[in-house]
Amino acid sequence: MGFKLLSKLLVYLTASIMAIASPLAFSVDSSGEYPTVSEIPVGEVRLYQIADGVWSHIATQSFDGAVYPSNGLIVRDGDELLLIDTAWGAKNTAALLAEIEKQIGLPVTRAVSTHFHDDRVGGVDVLRAAGVATYASPSTRRLAEVEGNEIPTHSLEGLSSSGDAVRFGPVELFYPGAAHSTDNLIVYVPSASVLYGGCAIYELSRTSAGNVADADLAEWPTSIERIQQHYPEAQFVIPGHGLPGGLDLLKHTTNVVKAHTNRSVVE
């Protein structure tokens, strides 16, 4: 069995187990497998329904001669939608809004960016022009300005110390501490036991640490421990890039980060 097929099978099995364990909360999309990078042309966006009122959005972007996937989250909030992270750029984010209108038909009224990198804030200006209120932590807003990236308009308070959590509509926002970046936030959907790890969490097929220019490698494993301790009931975990899975993604990420750190020390 090929690795790609095995990865998709694991996603399907995880979703099936969740649907059985929580039949009222989960209505997993039966329309197909989780979209992969090879299936999404740059400039297009796919939506994948995880649970009743919960979707991931998947886009792709060219970077350094390669094409990478990027995940975000959409959560229903009454007759409105909360968006977590842009679709990595203005063109993708405009396509995301169009796809949401086509498939869901509810307005996106608020959006949260989970850290300051372009795959999370690139497209904020498109959201703002569409009347979406954009939010991020003060740290993310400051770092985005320093980096020359787009800056969300509103500040999220109460997320300055490791372990801080605040309720934001249908989700809980959690600051686990520094990891992929010093400002990275985690998003949890309690009604569906869905954990969105953003770039602080890796997919299972990833074996290298990737972009760690703004990471705190020493603190990252401790931050992941905080996530595990705060959300032990999480059933569906979405990484910032690639295929979702279960809580095993947290341990896998820790292993990859520690291996990278150990290699760096040896070198």
Results as ranks from 00 to 15, higher is better:
residue 39 E to L: 12
residue 210 G to I: 05
residue 202 Y to K: 06
residue 18 M to G: 13
residue 144 A to E: 01
residue 166 V to R: 10
residue 61 Q to Y: 08
residue 153 T to A: 12
residue 94 A to H: 13
residue 167 R to N: 12
residue 189 V to Q: 00
residue 163 G to D: 06
residue 66 A to R: 12
residue 163 G to H: 05
residue 81 L to R: 03
residue 80 E to M: 08
residue 66 A to F: 15
residue 6 L to T: 08
residue 265 V to S: 12
residue 135 Y to I: 02
residue 45 V to G: 03
residue 224 I to Q: 00
residue 43 G to Q: 05
residue 169 G to V: 04
residue 98 A to D: 11
residue 264 S to G: 13
residue 237 V to I: 08
residue 83 L to G: 01
residue 87 A to K: 00
residue 137 S to Y: 02
residue 130 A to R: 14
residue 208 S to R: 09
residue 55 W to D: 00
residue 67 V to R: 15
residue 45 V to N: 04
residue 89 G to I: 02
residue 173 L to Q: 03
residue 135 Y to A: 01
residue 199 C to M: 01
residue 180 H to S: 00
residue 41 P to H: 12
residue 18 M to N: 15
residue 191 S to F: 12
residue 20 I to C: 10
residue 228 Q to K: 14
residue 257 V to P: 01
residue 164 D to L: 06
residue 161 S to V: 14
residue 143 L to Y: 08
residue 232 P to V: 07
residue 159 L to F: 07
residue 9 L to A: 14
residue 184 N to E: 00
residue 62 S to E: 09
residue 31 S to I: 08
residue 180 H to A: 00
residue 233 E to K: 14
residue 127 L to P: 05
residue 41 P to M: 13
residue 132 V to R: 01
residue 233 E to R: 13
residue 53 G to N: 11
residue 42 V to Y: 08
residue 68 Y to G: 06
residue 261 T to R: 12
residue 178 A to Q: 08
residue 207 T to Q: 14
residue 247 L to K: 14
residue 222 T to F: 14
residue 165 A to Y: 14
residue 174 F to P: 02
residue 149 N to M: 14
residue 81 L to T: 05
residue 43 G to L: 04
residue 152 P to D: 01
residue 178 A to G: 10
residue 238 I to Q: 00
residue 48 Y to V: 15
residue 152 P to H: 04
residue 154 H to D: 07
residue 210 G to S: 05
residue 239 P to G: 02
residue 41 P to Y: 07
residue 189 V to I: 10
residue 159 L to G: 01
residue 226 R to D: 02
residue 101 E to H: 15
residue 69 P to I: 15
residue 201 I to N: 06
residue 173 L to P: 08
residue 136 A to R: 03
residue 233 E to C: 05
residue 180 H to C: 01
residue 4 K to A: 05
residue 19 A to G: 12
residue 210 G to H: 05
residue 165 A to R: 14
residue 64 D to N: 13
residue 171 V to E: 04
residue 66 A to E: 15
residue 253 T to D: 00
residue 194 V to I: 10
residue 30 S to D: 12
residue 172 E to P: 02
residue 109 T to I: 11
residue 100 I to K: 00
residue 267 E to A: 04
residue 203 E to A: 07
residue 159 L to K: 02
residue 127 L to H: 04
residue 224 I to C: 00
residue 81 L to G: 02
residue 102 K to C: 08
residue 144 A to L: 08
residue 227 I to L: 07
residue 27 S to G: 12
residue 97 L to E: 03
residue 41 P to E: 14
residue 260 H to T: 12
residue 205 S to W: 07
residue 157 E to N: 14
residue 167 R to D: 12
residue 158 G to W: 04
residue 101 E to N: 14
residue 63 F to H: 09
residue 185 L to E: 01
residue 10 L to W: 07
residue 113 S to C: 06
residue 256 V to C: 03
residue 128 R to S: 12
residue 69 P to H: 15
residue 104 I to D: 01
residue 47 L to N: 03
residue 118 D to F: 06
residue 120 R to H: 07
residue 3 F to G: 11
residue 30 S to T: 14
residue 72 G to Y: 04
residue 253 T to N: 02
residue 230 H to L: 08
residue 102 K to V: 13
residue 222 T to L: 13
residue 264 S to E: 14
residue 149 N to V: 09
residue 108 V to W: 03
residue 126 V to E: 07
residue 105 G to M: 10
residue 133 A to M: 15
residue 16 S to I: 12
residue 172 E to M: 04
residue 19 A to T: 15
residue 31 S to C: 07
residue 38 S to M: 13
residue 262 N to Q: 11
residue 19 A to I: 15
residue 84 I to N: 04
residue 199 C to A: 00
residue 221 P to S: 10
residue 22 S to F: 08
residue 10 L to Y: 15
residue 202 Y to N: 07
residue 42 V to G: 14
residue 186 I to D: 00
residue 115 H to W: 00
residue 28 V to K: 08
residue 224 I to S: 01
residue 247 L to G: 09
residue 132 V to I: 14
